[in-house]
Structures are given as C-alpha cells and as structure tokens.
Simulated assay, not measured.
Amino acid sequence: MRYLIAETSWKMVSLAKAVSDCGTLVTHCEAGDAIEDFHKIGEHDLVALDASQLLRGTSLCRLRELHPDTPIVLIARDPVPEQIAAWLMAGADTVIDEAAALPEMIAQIDCVARRAQGIARPLLECGPLTFDLEARRVHLGDVTLSLSPKLYEILEYLVLRPGRLASREALLSHVYGFENEPAPRVFDVYMCNLRSHLSGIAGTVRIATVRGAGYRLDVQDPSRSNNPLAA
C-alpha cells in the first residue's frame, strides 16, 4: 500500500519514517498547503495529516471530494470528544491522539487502510496464495515466495484490485510515487520476473496483459477446476 503523509510537524515526520521503515510505501508531502495537490495527482490507499492543517486552508470536505473512497486519518493534540465528532462528520475516518506511541498509531492507520479495502485482518487469501500484509510476505502453502520489495508492491497492488484493469502508469505511480520512474524496459523485466514466480499456479492466479491498456490479475475459483494448480 501507499500512504500520503503530510510531514508538517516532527511527530508527522517521525510517523512517516516509522511507516516507511515497516515497508509501506510513503508519499512525503512537506508543505501542508500542498496536501490537496498531492492527493489530487496521485492514487493513495490512505491520507494522514496533522489536524492543525485544517486551520491553514486544507479541508476535509475537499480531500473527500477528490477521492471519496480514500480513508483520511487525522493526528491531533489532546482532541476533545466534540471536536473528534465534528471531524468525523466532516469526512475523517479516524482521529488519533498524537501522544499515542508510534506502534499504536501505525496499527490504527494500517487497520483503517485495510478495512477500506474490505480486508478485516492482515491476512488475505488469493487462490492458493496467502498474503501477510503486515509482514509483506506471500506464501504458497508452506513456501514463502522470494519476492523483491518492488515485485511484492506490484503484486499487492493487483491483488487488492482483482479483476480490475491497472494501467502501467498507475502501477508505476504506486511503486515509485513522485520519484524518478525506471525505463519501460525495467518495468517489463519486473513483470516478467513476477510472472515467473507465479508460473506454477498460472491455472488459478495469473497476470493478464491487456494490450494497450495495462494489466489485470485473474483469479480462478479452484472448485471449478479439476487441477487448479496446473501450470
């Protein structure tokens, strides 16, 4: 997943670093007045910002209008119940006290992001594959696939959107954010390597190329096949 975090205080900087250290992709926004522009341009699985930014031009309503389905987390200093209720009604998904320890904050943020995808727990079944979203690992039975971070990020993006078309641009934006993207040939190599890891279960899970449009993860119900693990 990729989170957009407005690093407008030391607490938010620390949070962004801790999230990144866990392996989650982070889009760093260092200016509060740019958070709406970052949110408008990129596709993120969650937005986190300091509640004080709401007094400086950023609007929960505007953030919600730009991407209605993207969860919004507010980090606030000593929030009172009435203010929390007002923020929730205005579009925030949850409010976290900035005094909370970083592991607790990350756990809350991850839960909000997962549940926005309809995932109750950090374990996700995809055909014969099991995704541990917290550990960022993919298991096939008792075997853990040896995926590089980039390959995991591409596969996770597709798995969270099964059957939906993902353009090359969307995948590159997710993996690299606003950083320098690789040459097209490098991305082709990534996809080739990822398909190689999935070759043994191509009968149930495969990445289909839609010429001129992008990629789609096709997952077949094993109960409909006599040999669901056939290559």
Rank of each mutant, 00 (worst) to 15 (best):
G214H: 00
R185I: 13
I201H: 07
L217G: 03
I201N: 06
R185K: 15
A183L: 12
M191K: 08
A230T: 05
V205Y: 06
P182A: 09
Y190H: 15
S223G: 00
F187L: 09
S225Y: 01
C192R: 15
Q220E: 14
P228M: 03
P182K: 09
D218E: 15
R216G: 01
V189I: 15
D188T: 12
Q220F: 07
V219F: 02
F187E: 08
R216E: 14
D221K: 07
L194W: 11
P184I: 08
P228I: 02
D218R: 12
Y190A: 05
L194S: 11
A230V: 10
D221A: 06
V186N: 10
G212F: 09
A202C: 06
C192Q: 15
D218H: 09
L229M: 10
A231C: 11
R211Y: 12
A213S: 12
R185L: 13
R211L: 06
T204P: 05
I207G: 04
R206N: 14
V186L: 10
P228D: 02
L229T: 01
M191H: 10
P222Q: 00
V205K: 07
A208K: 03
G214M: 01
V189K: 15
V186Q: 11
A183E: 14
S199K: 13
F187C: 04
I201P: 10
Q220W: 04
D218M: 11
C192M: 13
N226A: 06
A202L: 01
I207T: 09
P184M: 04
G214L: 02
Y215W: 12
D221M: 03
T209Q: 11
P184Y: 04
P184T: 11
G214W: 00
A213K: 15
A183G: 02
G214C: 02
G214Q: 05
L198T: 08
S199P: 02
P228Q: 02
G200H: 11
M191P: 10
N226G: 13
D218G: 00
N193W: 06
N226K: 06
L194T: 10
N193K: 14
S225N: 08
S223F: 01
P222H: 00
T209I: 12
S223C: 02
P222T: 00
A183V: 13
N227Q: 10
T204F: 03
I207S: 04
V205D: 04
A231L: 08
V186D: 04
G212P: 06
I201Q: 06
R211S: 11
V189W: 12
S225I: 01
N193H: 15
V210K: 03
D218K: 05
F187G: 04
Y190W: 15
V189H: 11
R185S: 12
Y215G: 00
S199R: 15
N193L: 15
R195M: 04
S199T: 10
Y215S: 01
L194I: 13
V219W: 02
D221E: 12
L194F: 12
Y215T: 01
V210L: 06
G200Y: 05
R185A: 14
Q220A: 13
I201T: 07
P182N: 07
V210T: 11
D218C: 07
D218W: 01
S225D: 03
R216M: 15
V219Y: 01
S225M: 13
Y190G: 08
T209L: 08
S199Y: 05
P228E: 01
P182R: 10
